[in-house]
Simulated assay, not measured.
Amino acid sequence: MELMRAARLHVPSRTLTVEDVPRPAPGPRQVLVRVEAAGVCLSDVHVIDGTLTPAYLRAEAVTLGHEVAGTIAALGPDVTGWTTGQRVVLQAGETRDGRVLTRGIDYDGGWAQYALADVATLFRLPDSIPFEQGAIIPDAVSTPWGAITTTAGVKPAQAVGVWGVGGLGAHAVQLLRAVGAYPIIAVDPAPAARRRALDFGADLALDPADAQLRERILAATGDRALAVALDFAGVPAVREQALTVLAPKGRLVLVGLTDRPLTVTDGTRFSYLQHQILGHYGSEEDAVPQLIALAEGGRLDFSRSITDVLPLDDAAKAVQRLLTKEGDPIRLILRP
C-alpha cells in the first residue's frame, strides 16, 4: 500500500495532524491529482475551531483544503479527454445526489500530496498561471466573483461597499474594478487591510469606527448611498452598519459565514426603502473557467495575492497565521 502525507482534521476533537495515510486510487470518472499548491482559507480555520461543522461528512476525520491545483497523476476507468501530466485546478466542491458538497469539508480535500477529483470538477490551468495563483481561484476569487456578478448583479457605475478586506474581500475589490463598479468603498478596522484595499483598486477605504462613515459614503456617492453592500466579515455589527448606508432598493449580500443570528434593527425603514438581504455561498460552475480565462488574458492579476508558501507539515502554523493575521496575509499556500 502506497502512503502519502495529508493534513487531517479529527472533527469530534477538532484536532489537526499531518500524518501518513493510504494514497487513494481513482475510480470511475475520477482522476488522481498530484497536489502542487493548496490554499489556506478562513473557512478552514472555522472548521478547525468548531464554528463550522461538516454537514455531509461520513467519517470522523477529513483531509482539509478546498483550493487545489496540481497535475494529473492517474486516470480512473473510462476517463477520456484528459491525460497524465496535465496542469489542472479543482472546483471547490461537487454535487452528489442533489447535495452540494464542499471539498475538504464534506469529503477529502487537497492538504495532501494527492487528491481525488471527479472529472466534472477539473479545469485546465494554462502554463502562464503559476500553481499557487491557480489554486486560489476556486473560492478566494470565485466566491466574490459569484457574489458580485450573480447574487448582487452589480452593474457598471453602481456604488458598492466591501466590508472586510481579507482573502475574499481583497479580491472582491479587484473584481468590482474589473466589472466597472464606481465608487468602490472598502470598510475594515485594520489599517493594513485598508491600505490593501486601495492597492487593489478601492476608491475609498474607511474605518468602521469612523463616526463620519455614513457622511463620507454619501459624499463619495453623490448622496446616492450604496447600491450594493458586500459583507465578507460575517459579523452582525457589519450587517447593521451596512444597512444604514444602502440606497433605496439596495442589496446587502452576506458572504462571510457566521452562526450568529441575523437581525434588522429598524424593520420599518428596511421595508420602506425596499432593501434586500441575500445569502451567498460559493459560485456557479462556470466561474472558475471564466476567471482562469481572464487571468490568462491579462485582465486579472493574482500575483499580489500569495502572501507566503509553506510546506504541508506546517499546516497548523499556516492556520495560526491566518487566525492571528500575522503578516497581514491575503492567501497562504501549502505545498506538499
Rank of each mutant, 00 (worst) to 15 (best):
W163S: 06
G166N: 02
A147G: 14
G164S: 11
G167H: 01
A147I: 10
G164R: 09
T151L: 07
L168G: 06
G164C: 11
G146Y: 10
A170N: 05
I148F: 13
G167Y: 04
G169Q: 09
I148N: 08
V160N: 03
W163F: 14
I148D: 12
G167Q: 02
T149G: 05
G169S: 08
G161C: 04
V165F: 02
P156H: 13
T150N: 14
G146R: 07
V162Y: 10
A159F: 05
K155V: 07
T150L: 13
Q174R: 15
A172M: 12
G161Y: 00
A159D: 05
A172P: 10
A172Q: 06
L176W: 10
V162D: 05
V173F: 06
K155I: 00
G164K: 08
G169Y: 05
L176G: 08
A170P: 00
G153V: 08
L176C: 10
A159W: 04
K155E: 14
T150H: 15
T151R: 14
L176I: 06
A170T: 11
V154K: 08
T150F: 13
G153I: 10
Q158H: 10
G167N: 02
W163M: 06
A152M: 07
V154T: 11
A170R: 10
L176Q: 08
G166P: 05
T150W: 14
A152F: 05
A172E: 08
T150Y: 14
A170L: 07
V162M: 09
L176E: 06
A157H: 14
G169M: 09
Q174A: 15
L175C: 13
T151C: 08
G153T: 09
P156G: 13
G153N: 12
L176D: 07
G146L: 11
L168N: 02
A152Y: 03
V165C: 05
W163R: 00
L168Y: 08
T150M: 09
A170K: 00
L168S: 07
T150P: 00
G169P: 10
A157G: 02
A172L: 11
T149F: 11
L168W: 04
Q174Y: 09
G169H: 04
L168T: 01
G146H: 08
L175H: 11
A147Y: 05
K155P: 00
V162N: 06
L175F: 13
L168A: 07
V160W: 05
Q174H: 14
I148G: 11
P156C: 13
G167W: 04
L175T: 02
T149H: 14
G161A: 14
V173D: 03
A170Y: 02
K155N: 00
I148M: 13
G167R: 03
G169N: 07
G167P: 01
V154D: 03
A172F: 12
V165P: 01
V173Q: 01
A152D: 08
A157I: 03
G164P: 10
G161Q: 02
A157V: 07
V165E: 00
G153W: 13
G161V: 01
I148V: 14
W163I: 00
Q174P: 02
P156I: 13
G164F: 12
I148C: 12
G169L: 03
V165Q: 02
G164H: 11
W163P: 00
Q174C: 10
V165N: 04
W163Y: 14
